[in-house]
Design a protein around this nucleic acid. Structure first.
Lengths: 155, 155
DNA sequence: CCATTTCGACAACCACGTTGCCTATTTTAG
DNA sequence: CTAAAATAGGCAACGTGGTTGTCGAAATGG
């Protein structure tokens, strides 16, 4: 404990890094024709995936209730990013699928994330960034990369 | 772009690190007699500080409207962490001050954050953690350490 | 065949943010 | 010194994203 650095900066730096990336992602997505995609929707689309998913399944993946997932799907549907289809096998289920527009947004997100990471690599150096990632992986340990952040933060 | 690592992991790692720290902070605070402190309240108390602040000032510091800050103060008041006092100098203002309980929570938070950072240092090595912090500082650049994360995320 | 589980939807509610508007007060200009 | 502008804080209405509880319909397992 002979260190001079205060502990409270560490979480703020992590949060600032996260925010910086997501802000730039959304700015770039907006520029590329997706002005309505909010961070939450990005995570939700990720949870749907290219294979589609049911609302209950989405809820489990996002760590929220199926009702909350259903509401998010409502929004995605309004925005034209997802659609509900009756499941031919299971009469209770509605399969949620990404529309071509949703798939486009998801694909662009992946590319933009790669570009942002490349920016960081250019700024920090490839090795240093890789070590940063490794260090984080070590520090967070087995903690899953959960995504139910909104509710977690507020509640 | 010859790197194999996908870009989307970087934000998730940063978020997971942040979550891990805040979750442990709140668990420890709960154990030490502050079960009601939510992440949001911790940031809000930080914004009040030991010298107190007005609601408008809080809003500016947190990056939210003065009304939103006022609502948060309502909660902190209910929980006994803050109080409103008439400003003797400016009849419009109400000075928001931390109660002894609020100061206690804030002090414990600082200690816990230091302990958590020490844990990371023990896991990663002191130099590696310091480099992680430096790298993040470099990468986020002048981006302020804003704290209006709930609204930012959702909106 | 019936009991249990699961799915999706609806309703009521809560937390936290927003804008717009209002009054009281302070500050600033003329 | 006074009139105008800026600021503080509170109120109302609303949006969004959660939560539980309930329900009917459809699957599933004895």
């Amino acid at each position: 404990m002979t260190e001079g650095r205060p502990g409270f900066e560490l979480p703020l730096l992590l949060l600032a890094g996260f925010r910086a990336l997501i802000d730039r992602l959304n700015a770039e997505l907006a520029r590329q024709g997706h002005p309505d995609v909010r961070p939450v929707y990005g995570f939700a689309m990720q949870a749907i995936g290219l294979d589609g998913a049911s609302a209950s399944e989405m809820g489990r993946r996002l760590g929220v209730s199926k009702q909350a997932a259903g509401k998010t799907v409502d929004r995605l549907e309004e925005l034209g990013y997802a659609e509900r289809v009756d499941d031919p096998v299971d009469g209770r289920r509605k399969l949620i699928r990404l529309t071509p527009r949703g798939i486009d947004a998801l694909g662009r997100s992946a590319i933009i994330f790669d570009e942002l990471r490349a920016d960081w690599a250019a700024t920090l150096g490839v090795d240093r960034l890789a070590d940063l990632e490794d260090a984080l992986r070590t520090a967070v340990g087995s903690a899953e990369l959960r995504v139910d952040t909104v509710s977690w933060f507020g509640t």
